[in-house]
């Protein structure tokens, strides 16, 4: 009897939560279909997808997202590994340093970047390439908390130090240890970090706004200010994108579980 009662409540709360999440989404979705008066249609979506600026900004942000992920992994993976193996007492300090991007507002970061690199001797804002370097640097900093934590959790789930020593005693150098032993066991962690990074870059708008680059975030904000139905369609598209990302994380982690049946 008692468990049944509990179950009823559990279902009640679950339904409530679902409603909280899905009713606004459903509302947005239905609204996005109402561009043509009187009928439901995908007109708004067509309008969005037909806009060359949308595709351009999408391509730009996706490229930046991939570059950010690559730079971020190349930077953080060896660093975190080094900290685990050589200076484990640095870990609390790293936890604090990597959380700083959450504490410092993006707007402050942007002004800092522009003030430092907007004039000689390190002027980078003159060319689009230089500005893109600044963008990447900014994105890497903004997404660092996610990437660092993903890698950190992955490293914590194995005995990095002993595995390293085992590989070394079998003849591996540092590079071989990192690529053949550590990285394969971090695949899921790095992948989920990468997808969160990518999604963040796709939605970021302040950095691009101030550095005047055609990013998806700025485009969406602009549309939101000037049109009615298209922003709703865009919101649904970006929801979809996020779900695809989450689906990919799920898919890849399942793949690894089949390979190794239990825990670690």
């Amino acid at each position: 009897m008692k468990t049944q009662k509990k179950n009823t409540w559990a279902i009640f709360w679950a339904v409530l939560a679902m409603l909280y999440f899905f009713v606004p989404m459903l509302g947005t979705f239905i609204f996005s279909l109402r561009m043509k008066r009187g009928v439901l249609s995908f007109q708004a979506y067509q309008s969005v997808l037909a806009d060359s600026r949308f595709l351009e900004s999408f391509r730009y942000s996706a490229t930046m997202g991939i570059i950010t992920v690559l730079v971020s992994v190349l930077l953080l993976l060896p660093t975190v590994y080094w900290i685990y193996v050589k200076v484990p007492w640095m870990r609390p300090a790293m936890d604090i340093i990597t959380i700083l991007p959450f504490v410092v507002p993006v707007i402050v970061l942007v002004f800092g970047l522009i003030r430092t690199f907007g004039r000689p001797p390190f002027q980078l804002t003159l060319t689009t390439f230089g500005t893109d370097i600044l963008m990447t640097a900014g994105y890497v900093i903004i997404t660092m908390p996610y990437m660092y934590r993903a890698i950190d959790v992955g490293m914590r789930s194995m005995d990095v130090r002993t595995l390293t020593e085992a590989a070394q005693s079998l003849g591996s150098n540092w590079f071989q240890v990192l690529t053949q032993v550590i990285l394969p066991n971090l695949r899921i962690a790095v992948l989920s970090g990468a997808l969160i990074c990518f999604a963040t870059v796709m939605g970021e708008l302040i950095l691009a706004d101030f550095l005047v680059r055609p990013a998806l975030g700025s485009y969406m904000a602009g549309i939101g200010r000037s049109k009615a139905y298209e922003p709703a369609a865009l919101a649904i598209i970006s929801y979809g994108l996020t779900w695809v990302c989450l689906g990919l994380i799920q898919y890849f982690s399942r793949g690894s579980q089949e390979q190794q049946l239990t825990g670690r």
Partner: peptide
């Protein structure tokens, strides 16, 4: 000499097998 140049076998308490 670094450990990877010594040609010595090492067995650890925690096994340290490569999980992948």
């Amino acid at each position: 000499l670094p450990p990877n140049k010594r040609n010595m076998g090492m067995v650890f308490q925690s096994y340290a097998l490569f999980p992948n």
